[in-house]
Write a protein that binds this DNA or RNA. Structure first.
Ligand code: MN
Ligand code: MN
Ligand code: MN
Ligand code: MN
Lengths: 223, 223
DNA sequence: ACTAATTTTTAGGGTTGTCTAAAAATTAAT
DNA sequence: ATTAATTTTTAGACAACCCTAAAAATTAGT
């Protein structure tokens, strides 16, 4: 029997985990296929393998749930991914839109010591460059229950805590707008017509579409 | 056509390069198989692929030579391997017998920026933890023409510059003996019978077998 | 409830990289 | 120069992933 896990299997487990976070239902074949840029038929094949290995619970036509073992693996990969992202930004001068692609490879390097030492070296960061929480060694994740900027009312103030969409395009847009993690934002006005928002930050005024405001996690300021 | 290089292909090219350094002949199928812990038939298969891609010159039954393109790739991998080894020792508290296995994985991460920045971050190291030279960005390697400790005569002094065998077993043996890179060694006596050597370093005396002395690169001290 | 649309699975194949066993070529030994 | 030993290649197969096209199951629409 093959006891070693492959990179592909790791990517599948991670994808399933991330998809299962945003819902309580079984993760569908199609959603996995879309996330991994592959075909549904390939996903079905792989799901069977993951099921044989007891990493997912699978009922035909009903999608999958991660088992405890599967979840543990997924979280370990996610932890490595995010630690590497921190490393790249903090020490190797990468920008937040450059790290994902490289972390996608680095996350598969197998060495317990490497992960631990990297974590220590980075001084146990809690969040990655996109504001996503980094699981600790035991797999605990600070569940970010932050709200979206789009949910903030007029005249309220908040701080940008993370991005939902971490595509290169979105991150570059934010850079060009001067919006980063930690930026203090005040909602000045909301257009009823298209839900776009006038915001004020660092003295600058800007109008942002709902597509933007729906992809920014914020922390409300207490009154 | 498949333009992307696989990890396996990279490992083959690196192996062929390292084997070609110690000789001027074509690299044999069997030697590659041995180095990569695989079977000769698998090597023949892969050699054909590498040959199709113009990374090796291959004549049936005559072994292979790297082409210029193949050599470039091999050197790039070697560079990454050794840079990562330096990183692991310098920043993540790895010992020199632990780094190889992890670097074997890290060397395959694809990102020009990563390599460059890592190099800069490490302050452009010239040698890895085993004393092996690190190719620069243009692929130039400081050809270490050091001699073996076994070739040093009685009463001569030298400095340990590198290890030829970098197996965990050998490195651990050196650790337990207190021998490291930079250690100053004087040859006190050589046994004619088994070529073992009595050496003196850091006040300690030791007898080392030829197997040891033949695997240590040294730099002779000028008189 | 019954069709229609969508999702998921199966069937059949392709590629990469590996293996064992047998055949062919090369090299070494007499 | 033959024969024997060794090296290398071929033949045939298998595992991991991926694909397209067709079939089956589920879900949505009326
Ligand atoms: Mn990945
Ligand atoms: Mn991230
Ligand atoms: Mn490798
Ligand atoms: Mn090394």
């Amino acid at each position: 029997m093959n006891t070693q896990i492959s990179q592909t299997e790791e990517n599948y487990l991670k994808a399933i985990f991330r998809l299962s976070l945003s819902q309580n239902k079984a993760v569908s074949t199609n959603s996995i296929a879309e996330k991994l840029n592959t075909k549904a038929s390939s996903v079905t094949d792989m799901i069977k393998k993951l099921s044989d290995k007891k990493w997912v619970d699978y009922v035909k036509y009903q999608g999958v749930f991660l088992t405890l073992a599967g979840k543990k693996i997924a979280i370990r990969i996610l932890r490595k991914h995010r630690l590497w992202e921190v490393f790249l930004v903090k020490h190797l001068d990468f920008t937040w839109d450059e790290v994902h692609e490289v972390a996608e490879q680095l996350e598969h390097v197998k060495s317990e010591k490497l992960t631990q030492q990297l974590d220590a070296y980075l001084e146990y960061p809690t969040h990655d460059p996109h504001g996503d929480p980094i699981p600790d060694e035991d797999g605990n994740i600070a569940h970010h229950k932050e709200i979206m900027l789009s949910a903030i009312s007029c005249n309220e103030k908040c701080t940008i805590m993370g991005v939902k969409d971490s595509s290169v395009a979105f991150l570059k847009y934010l850079d060009s707008s001067g919006i980063q993690l930690g930026t203090l934002v005040e909602v000045v006005k909301k257009e009823a017509f298209d839900q776009s928002m006038h915001i004020l930050f660092e003295g600058k005024k800007r109008n942002i579409s709902q597509q933007i405001s729906k992809n920014l996690f914020v922390k409300k300021h207490r009154l």
